[in-house]
Design a protein around this nucleic acid. Structure first.
Length: 582
DNA sequence: GCCGTTTTCGGCCCGACTGTTTTCAGTCG
């Protein structure tokens, strides 16, 4: 069982305890433990195997430790089973609807017998919800639209979540002698923000052994099919993984084929057709003279072993998987205009992170050490402003105190430059949650929306436009406010806001946190077209989160961004010049 | 349920918004 699964179980327990009316701090203890575990890089199953002391992990005490051990060794948690005796597990899903928490879920169940989202939809359509004391017509309508939104996004997994399940599986297979190559294709390889199912491609000597090792993997919930060259298994949460064994001579063609996207491949095949060639997952074949169908049997094999050869066969350079969406990449490849994409090594700093001054878990100096380890030349401390009370957001007085600490740390640690920043809340009317006098003294001012996500589109647009027009603002952070698979983006005119940023020279953030990835790739592409600069920020709340940068880089690559587009690839000197220009 | 230390229990992120009320509970960030 992987860390992310353990965390998931503990979160389920938290919800059930809350429904049961448990002490709220007990509930939070489970949530806190889940957060720790999810962000922990060493697999807990390894720690358990090694007999490590789990209570040394933050938020993990005696009880959590024994829960973890039980989950790792038995694959289940008796506490969860007990709770499930009392409360239908499906209520957990109910609480994922915005506006429905534990209390309401319990009442809906107690008073209307609602156990599932389907039940709730039925009750709401019949008007049963509005009749309940404390509920009304509006609540009922909100629930219906929440259900509709929820339905729109099920079935896909956030890339980072899928990765946490798939990477250990790939490692498991790699451990087998005779496995020569193994690669994940599909949208996973294209680094899409979410993936449906996962395609594994393998070259190996002993087919049977590979299949056996795959289907008997500890994370497999059940085996869908297991043939000689193809097997399908289902992991936790229904994530489906297909494995294909391939002969070396067609590995490149298969990699190309299964990486997709479908649209990209269609265009590529059309191009092949025009050249008397045919591309399939087995290779590129010259169509025999006089043959009128494209798949008219065996022709001369022109390419197949390497992916680059497949592209070369149709007169193109290799195209990075992140670009393969038929968004102009084939045309660009033809004209020699493929962008030089940003890589993780290009980054020289991180422009959004939090410290213990607000809701971060590590001190400024600890974050500094983390940034040094990642080879950065600079980083911005961007704690929250006071409007975000729950995070301990800073008011003017505390911000000044923070500056003293920054100055003190900076004086001692001159190997890296600390930028004095803040993530300032955009208030409902578009004004900023910090006095101008202080804004002007910051090296980098991020602004972002954390409240009133539901304003009518026109007002929301106006609100954000007003904020980016403020002369002290440098960066519009996580512009749409979406949380992937959890909260839809705010309703506003993205195009107008991007235009506003362009007008005022405001940088747009691409928030690298895998739950946000905000702006999303297509909006990021648009930003680039408009000549906007982009800042990649992890929004780290602990040192380990600094590694989330790779997800930001993935999406930046999908948006065709290169180093010129991304300000935190610039030298410190150049970055400061850009920031001062505002 | 965890943490810290004050070795035995008290504190644990808090304020605003919403829809329903008519003074507030629930939810959210």
């Amino acid at each position: 069982m992987e860390n992310i699964e353990i965390a998931h179980v503990l979160r389920d327990v938290a919800v059930l305890l809350e429904i049961r009316g448990a002490n709220p701090f007990r509930v939070r203890a489970y949530e806190n433990a889940a957060r720790t575990i999810e962000g922990h890089t060493t697999p807990l199953r390894k720690m358990v195997d090694d007999g490590a002391n789990l209570t040394e992990l933050p938020a993990v005490g005696k009880d959590m430790a024994s829960h973890i051990i039980e989950l790792v060794t038995a694959g289940r948690l008796s506490l969860l089973d007990e709770l499930a005796q009392e409360i239908p597990l499906t209520l957990i899903e109910l609480t994922r609807l915005p506006g429905v928490g534990a209390k309401k879920a319990k009442r809906l169940w107690d008073e209307l017998g609602v156990e599932t989202i389907d039940d709730l939809e039925r009750a709401a359509s019949q008007g049963d919800i509005a009749r309940l004391a404390g509920f009304g017509e509006k609540s009922q309508q909100k629930m219906l639209s929440a259900i509709a939104a929820y339905r729109r996004r099920t079935g896909r997994y956030r890339l980072a979540d899928a990765e946490k399940l798939v990477e250990p599986l790939v490692e498991h297979l790699r451990g087998l002698a005779g496995v020569q190559r193994i690669e994940v294709a599909g949208s996973y390889r294209r680094r899409r923000e979410t993936v449906g199912d996962v395609d594994l491609l393998v070259i190996a000597q002993e087919a049977e052994q590979v299949m056996e090792r795959f289907t008997s993997y500890q994370g497999v919930r059940h085996v869908e099919l297991a043939g000689a060259t193809k097997a399908t298994v289902v992991l936790t949460w229904g994530l489906q993984v297909d494995l294909r064994l391939l002969p070396p001579e067609s590995y490149g063609a298969a990699l190309q084929y299964f990486t997709g996207s479908k649209e990209h491949n269609v265009k590529l095949r059309k191009r092949a057709g025009a050249r008397g060639l045919s591309i399939s997952e087995y290779g590129v074949v010259r169509v025999p003279e006089g043959s009128d169908t494209v798949d008219a049997g065996p022709g001369e094999l022109v390419a197949g072993q390497d992916e680059a050869d497949v592209y070369a066969a149709v007169g193109l350079p290799w195209i990075a998987p992140e670009l393969r969406e038929d968004r102009g990449e084939i045309e660009a490849a033809e004209g020699g205009d493929l962008p030089e994409l940003i890589t993780i090594e290009d980054l020289r700093g991180d422009l959004q992170m939090h410290s213990t001054w607000s809701d971060g878990k590590h001190s400024i100096e600890e974050m500094l050490d983390g940034c040094l380890e990642r080879g950065y030349e600079y980083f911005a401390v961007t704690d929250h402003s006071k409007a975000l009370a729950m995070t301990g957001g800073l008011d003017a007085a505390r911000l000044r105190e923070q500056w003293e600490e920054i100055a003190e740390v900076a004086a001692r640690r001159q190997e890296i430059r600390i930028l004095r920043g803040m993530e300032v809340d955009i208030l409902a009317d578009g004004s900023l949650d910090l006095e101008d006098e202080l804004l002007q003294q910051l090296d980098v001012v991020l602004v972002s929306v954390h409240s009133r996500f539901d304003l009518p589109a026109a007002r929301q647009t106006e609100r954000i436009l007003r904020a980016v027009a403020h002369p002290a603002v440098h960066v519009l952070a996580h512009p749409t406010g979406r949380l992937i698979n959890r909260r839809d983006p705010m309703d506003f005119d993205v195009e107008e806001v991007l235009a506003g940023c362009a007008e005022h020279g405001v940088i747009v953030e691409h928030n690298a946190h895998p739950e946000r990835l905000d702006l999303k790739d297509t909006h990021l592409m648009r930003a680039r077209e408009l000549g906007l600069r982009v800042s990649l920020g992890t929004d780290a709340h602990r040192v380990g989160d600094l590694d989330l940068m790779k997800y930001g880089v993935d999406q930046a690559r999908r948006a065709w961004l290169g180093t010129e587009d991304v300000v935190n690839t610039y030298s410190l000197e150049r970055l400061l010049k850009v920031l001062r220009k505002r």
